[in-house]
Every structure is written in structure tokens, then in C-alpha cells.
């Protein structure tokens, strides 16, 4: 175990997320009712994904500047954990939506899931899946590292239109779209109740640290396996 203080911090923050997330007071809202607590879990997954993808982008650019093979390993590991967090965010969102978006006006889950925000998020995750397909299609390590580093920059750039801009332009049931009150496609920071904020920010930090922890394990395994190459 090296540099373990932030791992301990991750554990403490996640324990606080679960204890505070279930037991602390939340705003009483219609439709959402008690499910507002999903904010600490569903939304944190997307935050973690964004942060991990950003770190992946930084290492891809570092690779392109230095041609250091280590940076390629870092970039692919961070992108992998980020994609995983994105899938978790999508799955949790689907469950949440099926209980809050489906009303008694003859809708079904399949009509609800044709949402610009959900389609955009799906496309964004698929673009990152293609990153791994692309990685697997090269035999030459240097070529793989260079091409996928460039592709990673493109994939990160595509996140912005797909999950931030398009849902903001068209109507969506997702909080933040023009149909709802706030103007931010994920959530409006001025809108969140201070009671929610008390748990939400530590939750984001805790889940992100856990994501980073898992990623460092993947990186260390890869570095061990490819020791002869480095």
C-alpha cells in the first residue's frame, strides 16, 4: 500500500455518503419523493466519469508530447474506469427514470428512454467503447498508442455536444433541460438544496477517489505485465 491517505479518505467519504445519504434530511418534493437521494449515487457516477475521462485526456496529450509508453497505459486505464462509471450512471439513471418519468398518461419506459439526454449519453459511451475496439485492432504498440491517443482527444471533445449541449438545446425530461426550470443539462448548482449539497460534494469526491484507486490498480498490473517492454 503506497500513498494510502487518500484511500482512507475515499473509504471515510463513502461511508459518510451512505450513512448521511440515507439518514439525513432531504427536501420534500413531489414525484421525486424519497428518490431524490439517488442524487448522491447516480449523479456522482457521471461526475466521476467526467473527471476520469479528463485525466485520461491529459495522459493522452502527454503521450503525444513525450511518446512515453507509460502515459498510454495511464490513459487507457482511466478511460476504462470512466466508461465503467458511465455505464453505472446510465443503468442507475434508467431505473430512476422508470419510477419518476413514467406518469399515468399512457407512457411506457421505451417512450421515456427516447430522450435527448439519454441518447446523447448512450452515444458518448459508445464512442468510448469504440476507443477500446480501436485499441484492440492494432498489433504495433507504438501505432496503437499514437492513434488511440488522438482518438481519445476526439472522444473527449464529443462528450460536450452529446451530453452537455444537445440536451440543452432540445426539450428533455432530465433536470436542467429547457422543459424543466433550471438551465443546466445536468443540474443547476444554484438549485440544489444546501441539505443535498452537504452529502453530494463529499459523495462526488468519495466515488471519484474510489474510481482513481481502482484505476491505479489496473495501471500497476499493466506496468508489471509489460515490465520487459518499458
Amino acid at each position: 500500500m503506497h500513498k494510502s491517505w487518500w484511500k482512507i479518505a475515499a473509504v471515510i467519504l463513502l461511508v459518510y455518503t451512505i450513512v448521511g445519504g440515507f439518514l439525513m434530511d432531504v427536501p420534500r418534493l413531489f414525484i421525486l419523493n424519497e428518490s431524490i437521494r439517488n442524487l448522491y449515487f447516480h449523479v456522482s457516477m457521471w461526475f466521476t466519469m467526467m473527471i476520469l475521462f479528463a485525466v485520461s485526456l491529459v495522459y493522452s496529450i502527454k503521450y503525444l508530447r513525450s511518446q512515453n509508453h507509460k502515459h498510454d497505459i495511464y490513459a487507457s486505464a482511466y478511460a476504462g474506469t470512466g466508461t465503467f462509471m458511465g455505464l453505472l450512471g446510465y443503468a442507475t439513471g434508467a431505473i430512476w427514470a422508470s419510477y419518476t418519468w413514467v406518469t399515468d398518461q399512457g407512457q411506457s419506459l421505451s417512450t421515456i428512454l427516447k430522450e435527448p439526454k439519454l441518447l446523447g449519453a448512450g452515444i458518448a459511451i459508445l464512442i468510448y467503447c469504440a476507443y477500446f475496439v480501436l485499441r484492440g485492432s492494432f498489433n504495433d504498440i507504438d501505432k496503437r498508442a499514437r492513434v488511440t491517443a488522438v482518438y481519445n482527444v476526439f472522444a473527449f471533445a464529443m462528450l460536450f455536444p452529446t451530453i452537455w449541449i444537445i440536451p440543452r438545446l432540445v426539450g428533455s425530461l432530465h433536470p436542467g433541460a429547457p422543459g424543466s426550470e433550471s438551465g443546466n443539462p445536468a443540474l443547476n448548482f444554484n438549485d440544489i438544496d444546501s441539505r443535498l449539497r452537504m452529502v453530494f460534494y463529499p459523495a462526488v469526491l468519495g466515488w471519484t477517489l474510489l474510481g482513481v484507486w481502482i484505476t491505479t490498480l489496473k495501471i500497476r498490473t499493466k506496468l508489471l505485465a509489460e515490465k520487459s517492454l518499458l
Binding site: W213, L217, L224
Partner: peptide, 20 residues
């Protein structure tokens, strides 16, 4: 939920130790 969290953390922790 805490038990599940501790189980997962413990698992990650063990992998970390083995890797070290």
C-alpha cells in the same frame, strides 16, 4: 449498504496488497 461497501473496499484493498 455499508456491508456491501465494506466488502467491495476490502476486496479492492486485498488486490492492492497483492499487487504491492
Amino acid at each position: 449498504c455499508l456491508l456491501i461497501l465494506f466488502g467491495l473496499i476490502g476486496y479492492v484493498f486485498r488486490i492492492d496488497r497483492k499487487l504491492s
